[in-house]
Structure formats: structure tokens, C-alpha cells
């Protein structure tokens, strides 16, 4: 069933178009950067963009930083929102269930395909960014890569930290996915589920910046999203990353629990 779901998702042109668009944005940014050589001013713009001007090897991380706030969540939200509600809309949900596919099983299969989509998306963005970064922007040997703390970063270290960043960003995206996924079991409209997931994200982003929401800030899903920059400090600052991982994990578990509790007991009338 899991294999079938994954084939279904990756057999669609739409899936590949969204991944292509995700990769397109960092590429466009890189082209502009390489043409103009103008980086964002300190304290503004996405992280690392000034650094990648002289060193393209950091670009995968920077590219993830570019797609992380909006584009990646949108793509993930749509895929996750589509999962159950999409089947309900085409009417195929009832045929899957009477095939029979156990409801829990169906959830697991859908979730696996979403997870794989998230991973493929972040890896695709990083690999595109690496290729683009090395070719269009400065490359390694001329200027040694450094951490944010200014210490030198060997290629293997850089590789490890980039992969950790990819996994962390992927895990964060799974949080968005589970919101949309839960909503997808609640409504028969894929659009509503995707937008619901995105509004949760926007709401959380607004609250994180609000001083008045100080007491709840540390429990918001997007609170630790940008903590991936901590992978590039020397030594790595694990605290926020760990917390982000845990907070996100709690959201994922709770929302998937809710999705499960709701979907396994609800009437399928679509």
C-alpha cells in the first residue's frame, strides 16, 4: 500500500512541477547574485546570502533558508492537504476503503508518501543549489568556507552540517504537513486543508514575533524553524535545534493522533 501511494504521488506531473518550482527560486536568486554581486545588507534578507557571494559551497543551506519561510510550506501543505481530502473529492476514497484498505493503514501510507515528498523536495533544492552555487557563485578553494563563528570549515564538515540542515528543515516541514494532513481527514476539500495548514503556519509566524505572546512562544510550531543556522556556528549550538526537534515532534505526534482518531471513527460520506 505504501509503495502504491508513493507511486501514485510521484507518478503525477503536478508533484514534479512543484519540486521544479521549488528548485527554480534559489536558481533565480543565484543568477541575480552572480550577475550583480550585490548581497543583502547585514541583518537583512535570508541568512548566508552575503557569504555565498564569495563561496558557493554554502549555497545549499542558504537556498533552504530562501524556500523555508513560504515556498516549501506551500508545496508541502498542498501535498498533505490533498492526501485524504483529494481522494474524497475524486470519490476514490470510498473505493480504497472497501477494497479494503484499513483506515489506519491508509493514513500510514499517505503519511509515508508525504514524508518522502518532503525529503525529495529538500534534497532536490539542496542539490540544485549546490550545483548552481558552485558554478555561478564563488567556489571553495579561493576562499575557505567558514562557520558563522569564523572558524574554517572542512568540506566534509560542511557536508555533514548541510545534511543535518536538510534533515532539520525536512522535520520542520513535517510539522506543517501534519496540520494539513489532519485537516485533510476533517474536510473533503483539499484546498481548505492546504490553506488551513498554511494559516496555522502564518499564525504561528506572527505570534513568534509578538512580544505579548512571550509565554506561548516557545511552544509555537515555527518558533525554532530558523534554528538550522545554529548548525553553522562553532561549536554547534544544539539547544534550539533539540527543542525545535522536540516541539515539532510533539506537534507531529499530536496532530497525527488527531488525524487517526478522527479518520478511523468518522463516516465516509464523500
Amino acid at each position: 500500500m505504501i509503495v502504491v501511494e508513493i507511486r501514485k504521488l510521484f507518478g503525477r506531473r503536478r508533484t514534479w512541477v512543484s519540486i521544479f518550482l521549488l528548485c527554480l527560486l534559489p536558481t533565480v536568486v543565484a543568477v541575480f547574485l552572480s550577475l550583480t554581486d550585490i548581497g543583502p545588507r547585514p541583518g537583512e534578507g535570508p541568512a548566508f546570502l552575503s557569504a555565498v557571494l564569495s563561496n558557493g559551497a554554502l549555497y545549499p543551506a542558504a537556498a533552504l533558508g530562501i524556500v523555508l519561510p513560504i515556498f516549501l510550506p506551500i508545496a508541502v501543505s498542498i501535498v498533505a492537504g490533498e492526501s485524504i481530502a483529494g481522494e474524497a473529492t475524486t470519490g476514490t476514497l470510498r473505493y480504497l476503503l472497501v477494497r479494503p484498505v484499513g483506515r489506519t493503514r491508509l493514513l500510514v501510507a499517505k503519511l509515508s508518501s508525504i514524508t518522502l515528498f518532503v525529503l525529495v523536495a529538500v534534497f532536490a533544492v539542496s542539490i540544485t543549489a549546490l550545483v548552481v552555487g558552485l558554478n555561478l557563485l564563488g567556489s571553495g578553494p579561493v576562499v575557505a568556507t567558514t562557520t558563522v563563528s569564523g572558524t574554517p570549515l572542512s568540506p566534509s564538515q560542511l557536508g555533514i552540517r548541510t545534511v543535518l540542515t536538510i534533515l532539520y528543515v525536512g522535520w520542520s516541514m513535517l510539522g506543517v504537513a501534519s496540520v494539513a494532513f489532519f485537516l485533510s481527514t476533517l474536510t473533503d476539500s483539499p484546498l481548505a486543508a492546504a490553506l488551513g495548514g498554511l494559516s496555522a503556519l502564518v499564525g504561528s509566524t506572527v505570534l513568534v514575533t509578538l512580544d505579548a505572546a512571550d509565554n506561548v512562544r516557545d511552544y509555537l510550531p515555527t518558533r525554532y524553524w530558523l534554528a538550522w543556522v545554529d548548525f553553522f556556528r562553532d561549536p554547534i549550538l544544539w539547544r534550539d535545534i533539540e527543542r525545535g526537534f522536540l516541539v515539532q515532534g510533539v506537534y507531529v505526534v499530536v496532530l497525527l493522533g488527531m488525524a487517526w482518531a478522527n479518520f478511523t471513527t468518522r463516516d465516509v460520506t464523500s
Partner: peptide, 8 residues
């Protein structure tokens, strides 16, 4: 084929 592969 997909439908058949989905179930037991």
C-alpha cells in the same frame, strides 16, 4: 491495477 494493489 492501482486499486487492486492497494488492498490485500
Amino acid at each position: 491495477t492501482i486499486l487492486d494493489a492497494s488492498g490485500p
